[in-house]
Amino acid sequence: MKIPSMASLSTKTDTLEKQFESIALEEKTLSNLMQFEADKMLAFIGRKRDFPSNPSSAEIIQFNQSCVQVMESFLNAESVLFKKLTKAVHLTLHEKNIQSASLNDEDNNEAELLENDDQGFDF
């Protein structure tokens, strides 16, 4: 099996880092949206849970349905992000394994060179 060079590895590592950054940014945005949705719910039901805007039953049901839709959107977004993250995690671990294998390979080569070096010191 051919081990890739260190130059291409650094490019892959950069790409994975960028991938993690983009996932983190999306997660941050989603967490803000979740916080806003939670605030919206709390504002609708009021501090004493007495619905300060006096909504009708139909309005309450409409609000519930809008909450369900928003939460479904969160779920879909999180599902996609989770898949991206899982792939990125697998690739990162794979890269780490390759890097450690190539480093070991370099060490072995250096050791072999030292062993075979019969022109080392000329007394």
Binding site: S31, Q35, A38, M41, R49, F51, C67
Partner: peptide, 23 residues
Amino acid sequence: RRTEAAATLLAALFQLLRALKSK
């Protein structure tokens, strides 16, 4: 922070359930 935001959302949901019970 994201996990805490999700927990906040669920906590708000529980508050909504409590409010809905009387309505």
